[in-house]
Amino acid sequence: MVIGYYVHHQGSGHLHRMLSIAAALDLPVTGISSLARPLEHSGPWLQLPRDDQPRPDGDVTAHGALHWAPLGHNGFRDRMQRIATWVTDVRPRALVVDVSAEVAALGRLLGVPVVVVAMRGDRSDRPHRLAYDVAEALVAPWPAAAPEPWPREVLSRTAHVGALSRFDGRPVAPADPGSRTVLCLWGGGGPVPSAQLSAAREATPGWRWVFADGSRDERSGDEVWRLLQEAAVVVCHAGQNAVAEVAAAQRPAVVIAQPRPFDEQQATVAALRTLDLAVALDDWPQPHDWPGLLARATALPAEKWLLWNDGRGAARAAEVLERVAHGEAAP
């Protein structure tokens, strides 16, 4: 009995999620991605060709029905063929998709129960509706206290498991009341706002700013965790992975939405603001705002982050996958 797990190549959050959930599963997991097999994954890995190199011409959306289905592209054709061949040969009991509307549809057309890892934001477009409609279950890596305004039929198949990160389960050190360190946790989610960071440093002379790139490289994990534990305040974008790691460390935070398709990060910021978990901003602030923002962040009770990430998100997601794999109703 095998579970396949498709990992999108953009950013590091999809891969970190897969590694956390795979570690919590009792069933073997085959990773499926155009990313290189990570050192942390001990199971099989189906290596896929890229479908965006060379950059395709013409319509890649099938007239708006899909997100990415370039015509006549060898990489796209070959990756779909490899997935189909693997399904035929291995006959997995479930296919997790994080994220691709096209792979979700392919899995269901091949007769495999599909579990889609959901994303925040406006997912009412045709491709997302297709992916969510064909899924036996959706895993939402955020708490039920901050739901998305989805149709009832979709919510009925959605398991709100809470956030999960590679740092879940690590002991959290008490905050140092004398720390004046601001950690900017950025990384694979987009370009570093270097000019804005320089202006923020200049506007807060009593604070020491440090930077971590949040790399998926295994060797960087311990260093990122150390920096999180030493920080008095964390500044990060509103990507799911970055917020999950700050929540795991239980550190005060200023979370700033970055432009993303479907307003994903704006939706996360709105949820954090509603739950009063962080100083949550829709845009990068003006330099003169930073002293007040850091003061507001440090006044928030850090333990409130347990509402977002209590360390059991991966275990809950694994429970959903195992129910689907055994043919049981989920969530």
Rank of each mutant, 00 (worst) to 15 (best):
A22T: 09
A247D: 06
P54E: 07
A317Q: 09
L71D: 11
A94W: 03
A131I: 09
A253G: 06
G72S: 13
L71T: 14
Q286D: 15
Q229K: 02
R226N: 11
H67E: 14
L110T: 05
V161K: 05
E230I: 00
M119G: 11
D213T: 11
A329N: 13
E319F: 07
Q53M: 12
V96T: 08
A270I: 10
V7S: 05
W68R: 08
L48C: 08
G58T: 12
R37H: 12
Q47M: 13
T30F: 07
H128G: 08
G313Q: 04
G107P: 05
W225T: 10
R91H: 14
T298Q: 12
D176S: 04
A36Q: 13
S12N: 12
S20R: 11
A314H: 02
A299H: 11
H9M: 07
A329Q: 15
A200H: 02
D125T: 13
L275R: 07
A203M: 10
P177Y: 02
E218H: 11
V233D: 02
P291E: 05
A23S: 14
L66Y: 14
L109T: 00
A69T: 15
L130K: 08
H8Q: 12
E303Y: 00
R55L: 12
R82W: 09
W308N: 03
A278Y: 01
N309H: 07
A24G: 09
S100E: 03
F76Q: 13
Q250W: 06
G13F: 01
R201I: 15
E322M: 09
A173D: 12
R260Y: 04
F211T: 12
G221C: 12
G292R: 14
T158S: 07
P147Q: 05
R91G: 08
D122T: 10
P149S: 01
H237K: 08
V99K: 00
V97N: 01
D276Y: 05
S20F: 02
P38F: 04
L227F: 09
R50H: 11
W284H: 00
A118H: 09
G311H: 04
V139D: 01
L321N: 03
V192F: 11
A325T: 11
R157S: 06
H63R: 13
A314S: 10
R126G: 00
A267P: 09
C236T: 15
D283M: 09
V172D: 05
S20W: 02
P28K: 01
A135V: 03
E202L: 10
A297L: 07
F76T: 14
L110R: 04
P143C: 08
G239H: 02
P291G: 06
V103E: 04
D59F: 04
